[in-house]
Design a protein around this nucleic acid. Structure first.
Lengths: 187, 187
DNA sequence: GATAAAGTTTACCGATCTGTACATGTTGAG
DNA sequence: CTCAACATGTACAGATCGGTAAACTTTATC
């Protein structure tokens, strides 16, 4: 049984794109870093951008799965889970490989709103918003949509800040703010 | 008196980089878009990255100047100015040319923390944090640093969300949240 | 061993990349 | 008009870009 070359390619390409950027990573570099031949790449994917989309898809699934599972491990109630999501963010920020949000990067490098890569990044953010809004509803917020949006803003802000601002603890700051907003939304 | 070619180059290059990205924009394209010859470009700047840095510097100065002035025009007291800063964000988001934060893009495309471009992006965010923290202090917040950080998170989150999430009003959501956080910080 | 599927190697394509060199043209002050 | 400063135009360099083609090798199943 031969190892799945396509999956290996996507997995490794994801790492390279995440570390070095999309436009800044050429196909020849991917050959070297993934150990997969260029011919095989074009056998599995029609173009570089299709490969990027597959990498984003993998990132989407694996990261969200990890995130949601981790939130559920840390807290039982919807309200506690909303707060715990910021602890999970903090865990992520502490990882050596942390380089910010791959979907923010995708949206930044592919800015045309109808570009498939941009669309994929937007879809991912929409799913995170829905997750937060759903938890906010379950937690009994008077306006779950508003609270969900506000918590998303904190999360996105924390991610950007974790990349760019030194000597600060954005996950912790965001968690503190989230507590205040949650209390306000439930009270 | 000859128009300042260097300034014109930087101004136009800034627009192109903002619209199309840094790595995705080549020097030949800049020649076409700016009307400045490649020779002149290399006369004024040693490299493409030096030109990018100059563009970031221009963006830094012009945007912050506009932002701060606009905040002061909209409100008189520090507390009101903190809230008004979200209205100013909203104005920015409504501009046709809005494409998100150029410094987030710079940090995304140049991820090495010691890279001059990344450093410049980080410096910009630090200045915005100081601005908010200063206003928070003047507004009488018990912990101006914490409030400044929280409001920065909301602003950064609003910018990212304005780019990637449809059918939402991130500036308004952020403003609502900022009100709650400010009240909590002053009360 | 035979064989099909999968994958690699090598070379190539036209285009573009960042940056350099040199000849030529333009501008504005004196 | 002269002339220095500034800018343009053109061609080039070596490298890389995304992608293609053909020959060859490897793998796994029968």
């Amino acid at each position: 049984m031969r190892p799945n070359k396509r999956d290996e390619l996507v997995r490794k390409a994801l790492q390279v794109f995440y570390r070095d950027g999309f436009h800044a990573t050429g196909m020849d570099k991917l050959v070297v870093e993934t150990g997969v031949s260029k011919t095989s790449m074009y056998k599995h994917f029609r173009s570089k951008e299709d490969l990027i989309l597959a990498a984003l898809q993998l990132r989407d699934e694996s990261f969200r799965k990890w995130f949601l599972c981790r939130v559920e491990e840390l807290a039982d109630t919807p309200a506690d889970q909303l707060i715990a999501s910021f602890d999970v963010l903090g865990e992520w920020f502490q990882e050596d490989s942390f380089r910010g949000c791959m979907f923010i990067k995708a949206g930044a490098e592919y800015q045309e709103q109808d570009h498939p890569i941009h669309v994929h990044a937007a879809t991912y953010k929409k799913l995170m918003l829905e997750f937060l809004t759903d938890l906010a509803r379950k937690a009994g917020a008077r306006d779950p949509k508003a609270l969900g949006c506000q918590l998303l803003l904190l999360q996105e802000g924390a991610i950007v800040t974790a990349v760019l601002v030194k000597n600060c603890d954005p996950a912790k700051d965001a968690k503190t703010a989230a507590r205040v907003l949650l209390e306000n939304a439930l009270g």
